[in-house]
C-alpha cells in the first residue's frame, strides 16, 4: 500500500514552498504599498475592503455553502467583533500601546464573536433549514436593536474614537490566516463531517459523525472570522453604528457567497473581490448601481445558478493527498 504514497512527501514539500512564496510575496507587496504609498489611498482602501469581504465570505460560506444550512444574520457576529475590539481600543489602549496590541484586540473581538456564535448555535441547531434562517435573522435584529439601546457604546448614534489601525498588511495577514484555517478545517475530518451533513444528515450520523458537535464547532469558527472581519472594519472606518451591521450587510455577504459559489474557497475569494471591485467601479452610476448589481446577480443566477465556482475548487485548496490520488 505504501507505494501509493511514494512521492507524497515531495508533493507536500512543493506545496509548502509555493504557499510560503505566495504568503511572503503578498506580505512584502502589501508592506511596500503601505510604507511607500505606491498606490493611491483610495485604491488601498478598496483593497482593504476586498480583504475584509473575503474573510466575511469565507466565514459565511462555511455555514451556507459547506454545511448547507442557511444563516442570514452574520452581520450580527461582525457587530460583536467590531464593538468588542473598538471598546478595548478606545477604553483601554487609547495610546501608543494601541498599535502594538492591535492584533490581540482583533483576536479578542473574534473570540467574543465565536462565543456568541456558540450561544446562538447550541439551541438553534436543533432545528434546520428555514427555521435556522429565522433564528439567525432574529439574532441579527436583536444585536442591532440591543446596541441601539446601550448608551455606553453610543446607542443609535454609533461609536467612534478608534485610531485607524487597520492597514493593508494587517488585512492581508488576516486574509491569509482566514483562507489557510478554513482550508485546513474543510480538508480535515471535521470538514468531511460538515460536508456530509450537507449531503445527508441522517446518513452522516450513521457514519460515526457527531453532527451536533461538528455543527457547533463549524458555527463557532465561522462567527470567529466574522468577528475578526468586524474588528478590522471598525478600525478602518473608525466609526461604527448599529446600522452598519443590519440586514443589508448580511444580505451583502449572502450575495458575495452565492456570486462566488457555494462550498468553495476559490469561489469566496473571487466572489468577494468581484463584488467589491464592481461596486466601486459602478460608483459613478450613483443610485443606479443598486439597480444594476441585483440585476447582474439575477443574470448570474439564471446562467450560473451555482455561482462562479459553485462546488468546484482550485486544486491548490484541495488536500494534497487527493491531488495525488487523481494523478494516479
Amino acid at each position: 500500500m505504501s507505494e501509493l504514497f511514494n512521492n507524497f512527501d515531495k508533493i507536500i514539500k512543493k506545496r509548502l514552498i509555493i504557499s510560503i512564496i505566495i504568503f511572503a510575496a503578498g506580505m512584502t507587496l502589501s508592506l511596500c504599498i503601505h510604507q511607500y504609498n505606491i498606490l493611491d489611498q483610495y485604491i488601498q482602501l478598496v483593497m482593504m475592503y476586498v480583504g475584509i469581504n473575503i474573510i466575511l465570505t469565507l466565514s459565511l460560506n462555511l455555514i451556507n455553502g459547506y454545511m448547507g444550512e442557511f444563516s442570514v444574520g452574520h452581520a450580527g457576529f461582525m457587530a460583536v467583533g467590531a464593538y468588542v475590539s473598538s471598546m478595548l481600543s478606545v477604553r483601554f489602549f487609547n495610546n501608543d500601546i494601541g498599535q502594538i496590541v492591535f492584533p490581540i484586540v482583533v483576536l479578542i473581538g473574534g473570540i467574543c464573536a465565536g462565543f456568541v456564535g456558540l450561544i446562538v448555535a447550541v439551541p438553534s441547531f436543533r432545528i434546520r433549514g428555514d427555521y435556522l434562517a429565522i433564528v439567525t435573522l432574529s439574532f441579527n435584529m436583536i444585536v442591532k436593536s440591543g446596541l441601539e439601546n446601550v448608551d455606553s457604546v453610543g446607542g443609535a448614534r454609533g461609536f467612534l474614537g478608534m485610531s485607524r489601525l487597520t492597514t493593508l498588511p494587517w488585512v492581508m495577514l488576516w486574509t491569509f490566516i482566514a483562507v489557510w484555517i478554513i482550508r485546513n478545517f474543510v480538508n480535515s475530518s471535521y470538514g468531511r463531517g460538515v460536508l456530509s451533513i450537507r449531503e445527508d444528515e441522517t446518513a452522516s450520523s450513521l457514519m460515526t459523525v457527531n453532527t451536533q458537535k461538528i455543527k457547533v464547532r463549524a458555527f463557532m469558527l465561522s462567527s470567529f472570522f466574522a468577528g475578526i472581519a468586524g474588528a478590522l472594519y471598525a478600525h478602518l472606518i473608525q466609526f461604527i453604528s448599529p446600522r452598519s451591521f443590519d440586514l443589508i450587510k448580511s444580505t451583502e455577504m449572502l450575495i458575495m457567497v452565492y456570486l462566488g459559489g457555494i462550498g468553495s474557497i476559490g469561489g469566496s475569494i473571487l466572489g468577494a473581490s468581484v463584488y467589491t471591485i464592481l461596486l466601486e467601479l459602478l460608483r459613478p452610476l450613483g443610485i443606479w448601481r443598486m439597480v444594476l448589481m441585483p440585476l447582474l446577480l439575477v443574470i448570474l443566477m439564471i446562467y450560473r445558478p451555482n455561482g462562479i465556482m459553485g462546488l468546484r475548487e482550485f486544486s491548490f485548496f484541495k488536500p494534497a493527498i487527493d491531488r495525488f490520488l487523481r494523478n494516479k
Partner: peptide, 12 residues
C-alpha cells in the same frame, strides 16, 4: 453523500 467523491464518502 452524492456530491462528495467516492473516497470522501468512505473517509467520512
Amino acid at each position: 453523500f452524492n456530491r462528495l467523491s467516492v473516497i470522501d464518502n468512505v473517509r467520512t
